[in-house]
Amino acid sequence: MTEKKRPPLPHDFHPPVAGFTVVSDDLAADGGALPQAQVAADGNTSPQLRWEGAPEGTRSYAVTCYDPDAPTGSGFWHWTVFDIPATVTQLPTGAGTGEMKGLPEGAVHVRNDGGSLDFTGAAPPPGDGPHRYVFTVYAVDQEKLGVDSSASPAVVGFNLRFHTLGRAQLVNEYEVSA
């Protein structure tokens, strides 16, 4: 059987920017297995994320979770939140519930590709092989990105493309056996 070709990561198409560090008390180390709490059927809980070393001039942050391996032709956005104040350098476990608890005042959620206004956990099709879940923190050069909660993740990504000073990412994998 031929190994399935994996699509590039989302930032492979963006200009290079400064890097900084993101870690999590909930997620595995980069390249590790996604914990069950971040799986749709077993918890659907957004992970705790903590970051440091963002570039000078950072005025806000955005956080996303994206699966480039989803069999859609365009990947799958699991979580998109932005306009996080520059003074905030972590989000607690469960901040992506959609109730905005745990998110700082002014932060904005947009609908994920499942249609809900929150974090939706991993749910790859059985037998589709491992999927990568790319958790990214963006350092943004403006306090407000200029879009609201009615924007799609693609529109948020378009705006981030032009306003990102730095990026930190953590990738975990998950698969469902056939």
Rank of each mutant, 00 (worst) to 15 (best):
Q36E: 13
P10W: 09
D12W: 13
N112W: 06
F158L: 11
S152L: 04
P71K: 13
H163F: 07
D25H: 15
A95H: 06
P8A: 14
V81M: 09
H14M: 10
V134S: 07
D12F: 09
V155H: 11
D67N: 15
G31I: 03
P153S: 08
V140H: 00
P47K: 08
G57V: 11
W77F: 13
T21W: 02
V39H: 09
P35T: 12
H11K: 03
P7D: 14
V156D: 08
T87D: 14
E105T: 14
Y66D: 06
G53D: 12
N159R: 10
Y174M: 06
T120R: 12
S177A: 14
A18W: 05
H11W: 14
E175H: 07
K101Y: 08
A95K: 00
G127A: 07
D128C: 11
Y133F: 15
A28S: 14
S74W: 14
G157W: 04
A70T: 08
S152H: 02
F162C: 05
F13G: 07
A28H: 06
Q169V: 06
K101L: 10
P10Y: 09
D42L: 14
E3T: 11
Y174A: 08
S116A: 13
V22C: 06
V108P: 04
V140R: 00
G127I: 07
A86R: 12
Y138D: 06
P104I: 02
G19V: 05
F20R: 01
G19N: 10
W77G: 01
L170W: 00
A154M: 12
K5T: 15
Y133A: 02
R132S: 02
A28F: 12
R167S: 01
A86S: 15
W79T: 01
G31C: 06
H131Q: 13
G114H: 10
A122V: 04
G157E: 13
L9F: 07
D67I: 08
V17S: 00
T2E: 15
A28K: 07
V176T: 13
V110R: 01
D83V: 05
Q142S: 11
R111W: 01
P104M: 03
S149R: 08
F82D: 01
G102T: 00
V156H: 03
V140M: 05
L165C: 10
W79V: 03
T89S: 11
E105R: 06
D30R: 07
A178C: 09
P8E: 13
V140D: 01
G114T: 08
V171G: 00
N112S: 08
L34M: 09
G102S: 00
D141M: 05
N172V: 13
L49M: 08
L49W: 08
P7F: 10
L145P: 00
L49F: 06
G31H: 03
G43L: 04
A37G: 08
V176I: 14
V110G: 01
L91K: 04
V23K: 10
A40H: 11
P47D: 13
S74K: 14
G146N: 02
P16E: 15
G31S: 04
T21C: 04
G129Y: 06
